[in-house]
Each structure stands twice: as structure tokens, then as C-alpha cells.
Simulated assay, not measured.
Amino acid sequence: MGTTRRIHALDGIRGVAALVVVFYHLTLVAQPFIDPVSWAWLTQSPLKILTIGTESVLVFFVLSGLVVALPTLRDGFSWLAYYPHRLLRLYLPVIASLVLAAVLIAVFPRDPAAVAEGSWLRDAQASEVSLGRFLLEGSLYPASYDINNVLWSLRWEVIFSLALPAFVGLALALRKHGVALAAACCGLTVLGRVLQIDALVYLPVFMLGTVMALNLERILEWSARVQRPWLWPALAALAGLLMIASQLAQPLFGAESLGNELLWGLAGIGAAIVILLGIAWPRLRAKLESRPIQWLGRISFSLYLVHAPILGTLGFLFGDGFWWAVGPVGVPLSLAVAALFHRWVESPTQRLGRFVGRGVARAAAPARPRTTEQPERSSRERQYT
């Protein structure tokens, strides 16, 4: 059940989304120094698609719903192997990223007076690290994070990962009603945004990916039958519009109005369409499978984990006088550190997770009873007895 083919374009989407999150945090560094008109052009125009932050994380959530659920549909899948593998895969890189952030804070002390009051650097970046705070953020329990700003999303990844049997079970039970289930998820994520209930915003987005996993073969077959080439760019435009609709409408509705919250709730639907396009649009798949984008996808998780501590450190180090240097220095530095982090932390963690998972599954498997029956002897053996 399910396809065994790896869709490399999805790795490319993950890489592009991670880089967009980096650009988003750069805009937060620059925000205190950009005049209101320029800021409006940057954040309330189609340019916003290049710097969407939380919306790009929603792309990660749909991806996780798809790629984490997909192996459960294959013969031989072991839940006993899954849990240690998945949790080690998430927690060990998280802890390593916190160690990196703590070292940077210790080596390059952060003086709040060096950055603008009310800025992302001052309000969302820790200037010191206590053992208690380190352990708390390493547990992925709190809702907000200061040592490594991006870990809020890993909290939801852990929740989804622990609840994966419920997600897969519900999707299987309603497999014949997959379109209705997907529509319900779209409605719930919008409702969650309006009601300000994070679980209702994010968990249905994971479910959208899980529904895709169950229908992956159908999606691939459907894409092969599409005879209208204009459909793909039209869907891409729709996805982009849904992901930035709330920003485009801010001059009309206001930042915290009901209308704006409704539009922001559509971002999860846009994220799901992005993943659909990565699976189904041949031209986009070809671009996402190019070597540079695949490399970016390979280090994407590491890039996501290391870039915020690096940008935060540079922001304090350069101060308000040289805020503009954070991007030119921080982006290539984040890419380089991410490549090293992937090689020395993420990849070994993946191997360790698989090793531990297989070991747990073997240890928990019932032992085969030893047979007391003697195998039937051949005629030649009976002859010489």
C-alpha cells in the first residue's frame, strides 16, 4: 500500500522553505531601520512571498504529515522502531542547536543596549542562558523559545509524531472520504486561527499531509492525466495568494481584525497546495530536483535549527550601527554551519535513530520457539545409519 518512490522534489521544497524562513528573520532584524512606506512594500505586497515565516513552517508541517505517515502504510513497518527513531531524530539535533546557541551567547555576550528597543533581537533572543531554561527549551515543552527562537515549531512536530497512530488511523478510517476530510481540515485550521487555538491551527495542517500520503498514488495518476498546462501556474498563484492574503489585506482589515485572522487561516491551505504542486507539476519538480536545490533540501533541517542563533549573535555583535551587515554575513555563514551541522550532528543522529529503532524492535519481538523435531533425513543418510 502506498508508493515506494522517493519524491526528491519534496526535499527541494523543504530547502526553499528553510531559506525563506532565514530571509524572514533578516527582515525582523532590519525592521527598526526601515521606513514605514518601504516596510509596507516589503510586507504588504507580493514581495512578501519571499519572506513568509510562519507560513513556510506550515509547509514543513504538511511535509511531515506526508513523509512521516507514508512509511506506516508499507508492509513491514514497525511502530516499535518508529518511536525511538523519530524522537531521537528530533530531540538530538534540537539539543545540539541549543548547545550551539548557548556557546555563541557565552562567547559573544549580548548587550540589550546595543540593539533597538522593541526589536526582534531584543525581545525574542536570550541574552543569557540558565541551566533551567536550557533544559526547559530542550524538552520542547514551552510554547515560546528565547535561546533558539525557531524551536516552537519542533514542539508541534513532536506532538504530531507521538500522535501519528491517531492521524493515520483516522485517515484510513475515512479513506473513502478523503476529500471531505481534507475540506474539514481546511475549515478547522481557519477556525483555529479565528479562535486563537494553536492546536486547531496546526494539527489539521499535519492531517492534510497525512491525507496526501494515503492518496499519493492517486495524486500521481491524476497529475499524469492533466491536459491543461495552465492549471499548474494557476494553482501556484492561488497557493501564493492564500499564504500572503492576510498581509495583502492588512491595509483594508487591520492587523488583528477578524477578517485578517480569517485570511491568515487560509495559509495552511496554501501550504498544502504547494506540496501538491511539488508532487504533481512536472516543470516544478524538475526545478526542485536540481542539484543546488537538492543540496539546500539536504541541509534544510540543520539550516532551520542553526540560523536564528547565528543571526541573533551577529545582530548583537554588529549592533544598530551595522545592522545591514547581518544578512551578507549571516546567510552564507548559516549555510556553512548548517552543512557542518548536517554532517556531524543530523546525519549521525539519523543513523543512531535507525540503529536504536531496529534494536528496540528486535528486543521486543517474540522469540521464535526452538523446534525439538529432527529434520527428516535423506535416503543416503538413512543408508549409512
Rank of each mutant, 00 (worst) to 15 (best):
R5Q: 15
I13T: 04
V21K: 10
Y24K: 05
H25G: 13
L28P: 01
L28N: 08
A30L: 14
S38Q: 11
Q44W: 03
Q44R: 10
Q44I: 11
S45V: 09
P46A: 08
L47K: 04
K48W: 13
K48G: 02
I49G: 10
T51I: 12
I52W: 00
I52R: 06
G53T: 14
V57Q: 03
V59L: 10
F60S: 02
F61R: 02
L63P: 02
V68K: 00
P71Q: 10
R74C: 03
D75Q: 11
P84V: 12
R86D: 06
L87E: 01
L88P: 01
R89N: 13
V99A: 02
A102C: 02
A114F: 05
W120V: 04
L121N: 06
L121Y: 13
A124D: 14
A126Y: 00
S127Y: 07
E128W: 13
V129P: 09
V129S: 08
L131F: 13
L131C: 03
L135E: 05
L136E: 11
L140Y: 12
S144T: 13
S144K: 08
S144I: 11
Y145G: 07
W152S: 01
W156Y: 15
I159C: 12
I159N: 00
S161W: 09
S161D: 04
L164I: 14
F167G: 02
V168Q: 12
V168M: 11
L181H: 02
A184N: 00
C185W: 04
C186I: 15
G187Q: 00
T189K: 00
L191F: 04
G192W: 07
L195G: 00
L195C: 01
I197Y: 00
V205N: 04
L208N: 03
V211A: 05
V226Q: 08
V226F: 13
P233N: 01
A236M: 15
P251G: 06
P251H: 10
G259K: 13
E261V: 07
G265V: 10
L266F: 12
G268R: 04
V274F: 11
L276V: 03
G278E: 07
I279D: 07
P282N: 04
R283L: 12
A286N: 14
L288R: 02
P292T: 07
W295A: 15
G297W: 14
F301T: 00
F301N: 03
L303A: 00
Y304M: 05
V306E: 07
P309L: 05
G312L: 12
G315V: 04
L317Q: 11
D320E: 14
W324L: 13
W324V: 15
P328G: 07
L333Y: 05
A339D: 06
F341S: 06
W344V: 09
V345D: 08
S347W: 06
S347R: 14
Q350E: 10
L352I: 11
V356T: 13
G357M: 07
R358I: 02
A367Q: 09
T372I: 03
P375S: 04
R382G: 05
